[in-house]
Each structure stands twice: as C-alpha cells, then as structure tokens.
Simulated scan of single mutants.
Amino acid sequence: MFEVIGERINTTLKKVQAAVIERDAEHIKADVKKQEACGASYIDVNAGARIGHEKEDMAWLLEIIQEVTELPLCLDSPDPEVLEMAYTMVTKTPMVNSISLEKNRFEAMIPFLKGKDCKIIALCMDDSGMPKSADDIINRAKDIVGELEAIGVKRENIYVDPLIQPMSVDKDNGNMVMDAVQAIMTDLEGVHTTGGLSNISYGLPQRKIINRIFLAMMMKVGFNSAIMDPLDTEIMAVMKTTEMIKGCDNYCMNYLKAVRAGNIKA
C-alpha cells in the first residue's frame, strides 16, 4: 500500500516554529492527531530551523508526539548526533530522512547507520549537484543502494528519493523523474521510492491541482510513497482512487470505505 509521510511537523513552518518556541504541546498534538486521522503512515519530525536548538527541540517534539500517536516517526535531520539521540527515544522502528551520496555527509552517517533497525530515505544527490537526466538519477540510485547494502542495510528498508525538481525550471523535469522511478522500481527490485511531491509545482500557480495529477502519474510508474500533507483531502482522494485503479485495493474496499466516510466525493 502507498505510504504517506506526513510533512507538517517542520520548524521551517511559522506556526510550528512558534509552537516549539512557546512549548505549545497542544498545537503539535492536535496536528499530529489530524495527520493520523487523515491517513498518514509516518509523521515526519524536523526541528532543524532553530540553529543551536535542534537537539532540544527534537527531543521535546518526540516526547509529546508519542503521547498521542503510535504511528512510526520519520526522523528528519542531517546531524548524526541528533539522529542518535532521537533513535533512542522512539518506540517504533523509525524512518531516517535522509542520506545522500555527498562524500562528507555519507561518511558522517555511516557510524550512525551501522546496526540500526530503521528505514532510510536515500537521496539521489552527490557532490556534483542535482541530477540532470533520468540516467543520472538511476545511476545514483544504484550507487547509494549499493553503498547502503554494503554496510548492512536491507534493500526493503531503502526509500530512494529521485529528487523531484520543479516544472517551472525545465519542462522535462516531470518526464525525467517518472522515467527514473519506473527504471528504479524495475532494476532495484525490493526498494521503495519516495520524495517531496510538491516540489514539482514550485513557482507555478494552482499548485494543488499540479500535485494531484502528478501523484497519480507517479504512482502509475511505481512511486509507492510520498512526503506530503495528509490534511489535503483532495490529494488523499487521488491517492486512494489511484491505488484502486492500479489493482492494489482488493474488492475496492479502501476506496468504498473512503467514499462512505465522505473523504472521496465529486
């Protein structure tokens, strides 16, 4: 089934950062409960916006979030020390967002990753910058999956992020990432794919309609997870409907349940 990584607990968002500064636990708890109710599979937790406070902010967030949900968490930080602390606090097998092929970043993460029971978002990013073609994405995916498997990470725990880039920058960015995802899901059997879905619409008007159509097209080529807002009822309706049309919903039960609950309507 498609996995939704709820993106809303992120201190780059003004309301979240204000709640963290003020230690407004009820604001955070209410948002997490809404994400779970709307169908999130994971709750992404990012406390990196306040320089010098990430570790304490992450610890506070993890403590209060786990008071109101049993969903697994996605620990979102580039700092191995913060991740090490966070890993000791979680009660369910977490996801780590994210690891890249950039030499210094990858080498710094190896001691943290070895022996850990966790899922990993693996970015198709290396020291040369953003990928410029589908082949570039595919080759980087193969490289980072190989590197992670070499240190003992199971393939089924790897979520390759092909780095969705805006259509406003290049008209071929949509096709590039769709071609790459289709090849990755074929050539690297057992891995998952995920990424920041809304990147595709950056800089364009009416972003939500772009995101919804793009999600359906990405799911058709094998995309099986996304970092997105589960409170967007329309995109969640697209996700459930696409799963049904793809044949991933026996007897259309999940689709029918969502329709009866009023979550899918014309």
Rank of each mutant, 00 (worst) to 15 (best):
K15D: 12
A49Q: 15
A37R: 06
K240Y: 05
H27M: 13
K208D: 13
A30E: 09
K246Q: 14
D172K: 15
K142C: 08
V82R: 07
I64R: 08
V221I: 01
G115W: 03
G262I: 03
K142H: 14
F214H: 09
L71Y: 05
A150D: 10
M89I: 07
V191D: 04
M228R: 03
N97S: 13
N254R: 13
V4W: 02
A134E: 08
K34L: 14
K154T: 09
E7A: 10
V177G: 03
M228C: 03
L71P: 01
S77R: 06
D229K: 03
K15C: 12
A258Q: 04
G129N: 01
L123A: 10
T233F: 04
D44S: 15
S77P: 05
E3G: 04
K257A: 14
S98T: 00
W60Q: 05
K119Q: 13
P80C: 09
I200Y: 07
I28Q: 11
S168T: 13
N157C: 14
P111E: 07
M218R: 04
M253C: 10
N199T: 05
V181G: 03
N104K: 02
T194L: 03
I200V: 11
G39E: 00
V191E: 06
K257F: 11
C248Y: 13
G222S: 00
T193E: 04
V238E: 00
T11N: 11
K33T: 03
P230N: 05
F2Q: 02
